[in-house]
Write a protein that binds this DNA or RNA. Structure first.
Length: 555
RNA sequence: GCGCCCGUAGCUCAGUGGAUAGAGCGCUGGCCUCCGGAGCCAGGUGCGUAGGUUCGAUUCCUAUCGGGCGUACCA
């Protein structure tokens, strides 16, 4: 347990004990302990920790909040505290002095790369599925946001003690592949000089033409004489291979590596979809109407039932997705997290309903809806659509602004919030991106260590209590927060908290740097500050790595 | 029409059932003869509107206005 967590724990135990004693002595009457919090107050004048326990208990105990607080304080063993105080409407503030802060630095230095990690998740198996872009085109900004979010979230969960598996679901079957085949065929014939009309709802992207050219280089006009359906199948198969490799490479360059690439087609081939439909049928959720098989999703709150197997015998995407989720749970994942674009929100309730219909607890499925990315160029919104073929690709984005800036930027916002990505700004002022601010702090520390031209002192030989400046104490305090920050981000599935933390940490370091000279002539103080700087370096690096951003030694 | 998300500082966005709501950008003025000035310090009449719950609401609930998205035998 982290230092902060154990102090918080100790305060809680003391409060609980005080309340119990008060009740035994008849000083307070209540039936259950309130769900109070112990937090670090915003104002440091309000102490190191504070609780609202007295205010929450006031009503049930029929006692004024401050009076409840007085009773708690009376029984509270505060011998290990500097001061305990009742304040405002009934807060109890705890003042710890500074000694506890000095325990933190040696811990950080010892734990090094593992600092920030905890066993919060107790090794629970979690799967995170993200991006899962259609392999009919290149990755765009929306996919990039999903990639940054999903990868960072996975890292966060891992650091918080979960066993994480990252997965990409390849939609290599169904209607869109038919459509893909038609588009490829049209381009293929066009490239070979035939005057063919391109399908109206086909994939207009330039990249498909390139793909077709590549295929022609390999097989020439070999498919010309084939049956249309066979030809489309051949073209689609080859194109998919190329597209999937391209997607893999792009994501790898973006710093994202998956544990599993799962093909939708395998669900068709293995009979998993059929099995799933049979299970639903046995449970009485399936009926036939107009030659199609329907799932009674209205039983789970949907407005209308959904088609599983079309009248032409082909399963819908939803049917495959149900089979996919059944497969996920069968693989033993305790929790399954999906990151979807907000345009799929209508699918959430249905999917959870389907999970429930299969007798799994729908709470085990968490879906993070990510609002779409709005792209600005020349002050205008660019619409992104694979159909129209107009979109900025992940590759182009990385070429323009770099991987680090892009990843940091995408995670900086809450998934709930629209992301305005101004390409001009990103290009013109990339050096002012917040990521540089954080990286600069890291590089600065390296620069100090380089100037030192010697090895760092051993922590046990250093007197950390010499660090008394406000800037020093605040910096240590922020470092100490990392484990709980990570747990909080993992619990709430909100990786964007980390970018915030990184920025705050960097800011406190810069403040420290400007007000306290590290390489001072005073030997003992210099040693202590050097190790504070080094602990900051470790903390910054660990956070940046979780974000998939490099921690540079110089810039 | 119905459903989901979002309305917080000039702009882009954090945040919380509590004690004085924050950061970046932009703007203005300062700061190392010394460890990297890609930095630091200072400067602010802002929680869309109206009700409700609460000791306490920017946060929860209802209504309403505005923006985005969804509402296919598409995915």
């Amino acid at each position: 347990m982290s230092v902060v967590a154990s102090i918080r724990d100790r305060i809680r135990k003391e409060i609980d004990k005080s309340l119990q004693e008060a009740q035994e002595k008849g000083e307070l009457t209540f039936t259950r302990l309130p769900d109070y919090i112990v937090e670090a107050p915003r104002e440091k004048a309000h102490g190191d920790f504070a609780t609202n326990a007295a205010m929450l208990l006031a009503k049930e105990a029929r006692t004024a909040p401050r009076a409840v607080a007085q009773v708690i304080v009376k029984h509270f063993d505060a011998s290990w505290l500097d001061k305990i105080e009742i304040a405002g409407p009934g807060f109890i503030n705890f003042y710890l002095g500074t000694n506890w802060l000095y325990e933190i630095l040696p811990n950080v230095l010892r734990e090094d790369g593992a600092f920030g990690c905890s066993n919060f998740g107790r090794g629970e198996k979690v799967q995170v599925e993200f991006v899962s872009a259609n392999p009919t085109g290149l990755l765009h900004m929306g996919n990039a946001r999903g990639a940054a979010l999903g990868d960072t979230l996975s890292n966060v969960l891992q650091a918080a003690g979960f066993e994480v598996s990252k997965e990409f679901y390849i939609n290599d079957a169904g209607n869109q592949i038919e459509n893909f085949g038609k588009s490829l065929e049209a381009r293929y014939l066009q490239q070979l000089g035939q005057d063919v009309v391109f399908p109206e709802d086909g994939y207009h992207g330039e990249d498909i033409i390139d793909t077709v050219k590549n295929i022609i280089n390999e097989v020439g006009d070999k498919y010309l004489g084939e049956d249309a359906s066979i030809r489309r199948e051949h073209l689609a198969k080859r194109a998919l291979q190329e597209k999937i490799v391209a997607i893999k490479n792009d994501l790898e360059r973006f710093g994202v590596r998956y544990d599993v690439w799962f093909k939708e087609s395998s669900l068709h081939e293995s009979g998993a979809i059929k099995e799933t439909m049979e299970e639903l049928q046995q449970k009485g959720y399936i009926y036939e109407k107009e030659q199609a098989l329907w799932f009674k999703t209205t039983l789970f709150g949907d407005e209308k039932d959904e088609v599983m197997i079309r009248s032409n015998g082909i399963p819908t995407y939803f049917a495959a997705d149900i089979a996919y989720h059944r497969n996920k749970f069968a693989r033993g994942f305790q929790r399954v997290i999906n990151i979807w674009g907000a345009d799929h929100h209508g699918h959430v309730a249905r999917m959870k309903g389907a999970v429930k219909a299969l007798d799994y607890d729908p709470e085990r499925l968490r879906i993070i809806l990510m609002q779409l990315v709005r792209l600005y160029q020349n002050g205008e919104i660019l619409r992104m659509s694979k159909r129209s073929g107009q979109y900025i690709t992940l590759t182009e984005l990385m070429d323009e602004v770099g991987k680090d800036a892009a990843r940091f930027f995408f995670v900086m916002r809450s998934p709930d919030s629209h992301l305005d990505f101004d390409m001009d700004l990103a290009k013109a002022e990339s050096s002012e991106n917040p990521v540089y601010y954080v990286q600069y702090a890291h590089a600065r520390i390296y620069s100090i260590l380089k100037t030192l031209r010697g090895s760092l002192p051993q922590p046990e030989t250093v007197n950390f209590t010499l660090l008394k400046e406000e800037a020093e104490l605040q910096l240590i305090r922020k470092i100490a927060d990392l484990p709980e920050e990570i747990i909080g981000a993992a619990e709430s599935l909100e990786p964007h908290r980390l970018t915030r933390y990184a920025h705050e940490l960097a800011s406190l370091f810069h403040t420290f740097y400007n007000s306290c000279r590290v390489l001072t002539d005073e030997d003992e103080l210099r040693k202590a500050r050097l190790l504070l700087a080094d602990a900051t370096r470790i903390t910054l690096r660990n956070v940046l790595h979780m974000l998939g951003v490099t921690a540079p030694e110089r810039m």
